[in-house]
Amino acid sequence: MNRLNQLFKNTSKPILSIYYTAGYPALESTLDIAEKLEQAGADFIEIGFPYSDPLADGPVIQNSSQKALENGMTLHVLFEQLKDLRKRVTIPVLLMGYVNPVLQFGVENFCKACAEAGVDGVIVPDLPMYEYEEMYKDYFIDNNLTNIFLVTPQTSEERIRKIDGLSNGFIYLLSSNSTTGKSTGISGDSETYFSRIQSMNLENPTMIGFGISDSTSFNKAAQYTRGAIVGSAFVKFLDTENALNQIPQFISEIRG
């Protein structure tokens, strides 16, 4: 049982995860932000590794990825930074990004590097489920990594059941089919979708992402799932003056 599994087992309050891009706003800010987020009360964090063509991301995260790449961030640089991760951070840490950099790095090497750094899980939205199951699953299992799958409002019940069977962490529910940061809040249609997932009584816990930006949307998400993930709103916040020292206030406002 890794840190992520322990968190969901031992925590009854709504779980808050924060996403940000490695190497943004500065190349060396990755661990400073992680440490501040833990101190401020985030339950787990998702560190994005930047990619030049982030199709699922809206302009805020696209911009952060572009700046991180310009700053010199790569997977090799990130793993070098993460050598000190567990000296500074105790909460679960996931890496999130696109499959192309992972394939270039080598999936087995990527999983080993995650384990060596103390990373608990990975979210690669464009990694096909059948490829994970047939080609890469053992690499994840051998390195005690959870692979997080995404579900959209259009995902069929059959596929959701399949995802539930392959999962060993949580299932990431997208609040809509739009890109990150495009919409905020949770619509009535989204609530119907969340209620449908809730009624399926899945084996794995669920978390909601996309559109979570304040205490209202966070608390609404927590009515249907174990909690929510804040991404674009936090990445945008990092561009403000003295952001690092204001992280406790940001977290407090999200929790309400």
Rank of each mutant, 00 (worst) to 15 (best):
L78F: 12
L78Y: 09
L78A: 03
F79Y: 06
Q81S: 07
K83F: 07
R88V: 10
V89E: 06
V89P: 07
I91H: 04
P92A: 10
P92F: 09
V93R: 02
L94P: 09
L95P: 00
L95T: 04
L95H: 03
G97R: 05
Y98V: 08
V99Q: 10
N100Y: 11
N100C: 07
V102N: 00
F105D: 02
N109H: 15
N109G: 14
N109F: 04
F110N: 04
C114A: 10
C114T: 05
C114P: 02
A117C: 13
G118L: 05
G118Y: 08
V119C: 05
D120V: 06
D120Y: 04
V122Y: 05
I123G: 06
D126Q: 13
P128I: 00
M129C: 11
Y130V: 14
Y132W: 09
E134G: 05
E134K: 14
M135C: 15
Y136W: 14
Y139R: 06
F140A: 14
N143D: 03
N143M: 12
N144R: 11
T146G: 13
N147F: 15
N147D: 10
F149R: 04
L150V: 09
V151C: 07
S156P: 00
S156L: 08
R159D: 13
I160D: 04
R161Y: 08
R161S: 09
K162H: 14
I163G: 11
I163E: 13
I163Q: 15
L166A: 05
L166T: 01
